[in-house]
Amino acid sequence: MKKMLLLGAACLLSIGAGAAHSSKRTANAVERGHALFEYHCASCHGPGIGNPGHPWRTGTEALQVKYRGELPALLAERKDLTPETVAYFVRNGVSIMAPYRKTEISDADLAALGAYLSRNNPDFAKK
């Protein structure tokens, strides 16, 4: 009986350690994703002034027009993005945004980018 209790306690400790490791891994993915966003995406989708006479950068301005204020134009402020949505648009492109090949953004980097852009999504945070 004592052996079973010790085994059960060991299992619970390992589950807790796994959850902590998973949380750290997620935090690392978000941090890596933020760096990738700054490198690949922010020039079009980041904050700041765009071309002369335009109040936003190109991608942000396009989303401002598309969503008419119903959703944030800045991707980093969105609360509805999922890693799958991010992956779809990165791999397929949309409008004037060209798709990114796996040689440009690897699947692992794309997962990190998805983790960063979905970090504000309350439904994704529950998973």
Rank of each mutant, 00 (worst) to 15 (best):
P83Q: 01
E104V: 05
C11F: 10
L117R: 04
R32A: 15
G48F: 07
H34N: 12
H34K: 15
E38P: 01
T103N: 07
L81Y: 01
L74F: 07
K127T: 13
E61F: 02
L63A: 06
L12D: 13
H21E: 09
D80N: 04
T60L: 02
A35L: 11
Y67A: 02
C41V: 13
L5K: 12
A19C: 05
G114K: 03
E31K: 15
L7E: 09
G48D: 10
M4N: 15
R101D: 08
L12S: 10
V90H: 06
A35M: 06
A19D: 12
L12C: 11
K2H: 13
K24F: 15
G46S: 10
S106M: 04
P55G: 06
K24Q: 15
D80A: 00
A98T: 09
I105P: 05
Y39K: 13
A42S: 14
A35D: 11
A17H: 08
A9N: 02
Y116C: 04
A112C: 01
A111E: 02
A9Y: 00
A35Y: 06
H21D: 13
R119N: 08
A20N: 12
L7P: 05
L63Y: 03
L13S: 05
T60P: 10
N51I: 12
G59N: 09
E31Y: 14
T26A: 13
A62V: 13
L117G: 03
S22M: 12
I49H: 09
E61P: 03
A20Q: 11
E61V: 00
L36S: 07
H45S: 09
I96R: 10
M4S: 14
Y67P: 03
A19H: 10
E38T: 04
L6V: 07
M1V: 15
R25P: 07
A98D: 08
R78Y: 03
T58C: 12
L7A: 14
C44V: 13
A112W: 02
P83G: 00
G48I: 11
L6K: 12
R78K: 12
E61G: 09
H21A: 15
E61A: 08
A125R: 11
A108P: 06
C11D: 07
R119P: 02
D109N: 03
T103I: 07
L12N: 05
T60M: 08
E84L: 03
K2G: 13
R25M: 10
L75S: 05
A35N: 11
L63H: 02
R119D: 03
